[in-house]
C-alpha cells in the first residue's frame, strides 16, 4: 500500500527520563531525610529508619490496589472498614477455637469478599458510582464488625502471630521485606503485564476499552477484590502489632491511603500515574510523619500538614498535566505550520 517507513525504536532521552514525577518524590525523600536528621539526633540510625517502616507500612499494602482503582477512575473508601471487619472476624474465630492458620485464612477470605462485593455492585449496576457504593459498604462493614465484637476486644493470639508485626528477618523488619517483595510484584504487574496495560486502558477510555475487547467488568472485579485482600493483609499486620483487636481499628485508613496514592502522582482523572510513584509516596509520608513524631510535634499540626500536603500535591499534579497538554499543543502548532 505504501512505502512510508515509521520509526519503531525510541532513542533514550535523559531529559525525558528525569522529567518524571518519581524523581520529584525521590528528591522529597532525600530532603525529608536531611531535615529529619538535622532536627532530631535520633533519626539517622539504622534502628530508627528500619523500625519506622514498621509503623507506617501496614496500611501501605492497600496502596497497590488503590493505585489501580484510581487509575481506573474509581475510588474505594471502604478499605478501612474492611480492615476492621476482617481483623475482627479473624480474632473472634480464633477466640472461638479455630486454629490460628485457619483464622488468618478466614481473614483473607473476608477481606476478599468485602472487596468482591464492592466490585460486584459496581459492575452489576453500572450507574452506581464507586463513591456511593463504597460509602455504603464502609458504614455496613464497620457496622458488622461492631455487631460481632460490640465493645469487646478479642485477641490473645499465639506468640508466633506477633512475628508479622514485630518480627525481623535478619535485621530487616519482616513487614519491610514483604512490602518490598509485593511492591516489586505490583510494579511489574501494572507496568509490564497485559493486565496492567488494560487497567490503564480502562482508566483512559472505558468505552474504547470495552469496544476493544477488554473485559472491563472482570478487571474491575479483580482489582476491587484485590483491594479487599490487601486490606485483609493490612488487618493481619495491624492485629499482630496490637496483639488484640476492636471494631474501631483502622479508622480513616482510606484517607491515608488515598493521600499516598494522590501524592504518588496518580491523576484523579484516571489513566495516569505509576505504581512506583505511589510506593515512593508511602515512604515520603511515612518518614515525614515519623520525623515530625521524633520532634514530638502535636497531632493537630500533623493533621494540618498532611491535609495541606495532599491538596498541594494534587494541585501540582493537576497543573503538571495541564502544563504538559499545553506544551503538546504548542508543539503541534509548530509542526502544522512548518
Amino acid at each position: 500500500m505504501s512505502t512510508r517507513t515509521i520509526n519503531n525504536t525510541q532513542e533514550f532521552s535523559w531529559k525525558r527520563f528525569f522529567l518524571q514525577w518519581e524523581w520529584m518524590l525521590v528528591a522529597l525523600i532525600i530532603i525529608i531525610f536531611l531535615i529529619n536528621s538535622s532536627i532530631s539526633p535520633y533519626f539517622l540510625n539504622y534502628l530508627s529508619i528500619s523500625d519506622a517502616t514498621m509503623t507506617f507500612l501496614d496500611k501501605a499494602f492497600i496502596v497497590f490496589p488503590m493505585v489501580m482503582i484510581m487509575i481506573m477512575r474509581e475510588i474505594d473508601i471502604s478499605v478501612g472498614s474492611t480492615v476492621a471487619l476482617s481483623s475482627v472476624v479473624m480474632a473472634s474465630l480464633y477466640n472461638a477455637g479455630l486454629p490460628m492458620v485457619l483464622a488468618i485464612g478466614a481473614c483473607l477470605l473476608v477481606g476478599a469478599l468485602c472487596g468482591f462485593f464492592n466490585g460486584f455492585l459496581l459492575v452489576k449496576y453500572r450507574q452506581l458510582s464507586a463513591v456511593i457504593v463504597t460509602l455504603s459498604t464502609m458504614i455496613l462493614y464497620r457496622g458488622i464488625a461492631y455487631m460481632i465484637l460490640e465493645d469487646q476486644s478479642a485477641g490473645e493470639f499465639p506468640t508466633w502471630f506477633s512475628f508479622f508485626g514485630w518480627g525481623y528477618i535478619g535485621s530487616v523488619p519482616f513487614i519491610l521485606v514483604l512490602f518490598v517483595v509485593m511492591a516489586i510484584g505490583a510494579v511489574l504487574l501494572l507496568q509490564k503485564t497485559v493486565f496492567g496495560r488494560r487497567v490503564y486502558a480502562i482508566g483512559s477510555n472505558p468505552t474504547a476499552s470495552r469496544f476493544s475487547g477488554v473485559k472491563v467488568d472482570k478487571i474491575k472485579l479483580i482489582v476491587f477484590t484485590l483491594a479487599g485482600l490487601m486490606a485483609a493483609i493490612t488487618a493481619i499486620f495491624l492485629t499482630s502489632r496490637m496483639g488484640s483487636t476492636r471494631p474501631n481499628v483502622a479508622n480513616m485508613y482510606e484517607l491515608d491511603v488515598i493521600a499516598m496514592v494522590a501524592l504518588g502522582g496518580i491523576s484523579t482523572a484516571g489513566g495516569k500515574g505509576k505504581m512506583l510513584g505511589a510506593i515512593l509516596a508511602v515512604f515520603v509520608i511515612g518518614y515525614l510523619q515519623y520525623g515530625l513524631g521524633l520532634i514530638n510535634i502535636p497531632a493537630q499540626m500533623l493533621l494540618i500538614i498532611i491535609g495541606v500536603l495532599l491538596i498541594a500535591s494534587v494541585t501540582v499534579t493537576n497543573l503538571r498535566v495541564k502544563g504538559k497538554l499545553q506544551k503538546k499543543k504548542s508543539k503541534k502548532k509548530v509542526k502544522k505550520a512548518s
Binding site: L19, M24, A27, L28, I31, I32, I35, I39, L288, G291, L292, I295, N296, I297, P298, M301, L302, I305, V308, L309, A312, S313, V316, L319, R320, G323
Partner: peptide
C-alpha cells in the same frame, strides 16, 4: 512550569516542617 512547581512544593514542605518544629 514543572520545575517551578516542584520547587514551590519543596519550599512549602520545608516551611511546613519548619513551623511544625516551632509549634511544638
Amino acid at each position: 512550569k514543572f520545575s517551578l512547581l516542584s520547587f514551590l512544593m519543596l519550599v512549602l514542605l520545608t516551611l511546613l516542617v519548619a513551623c511544625g518544629g516551632e509549634e511544638t
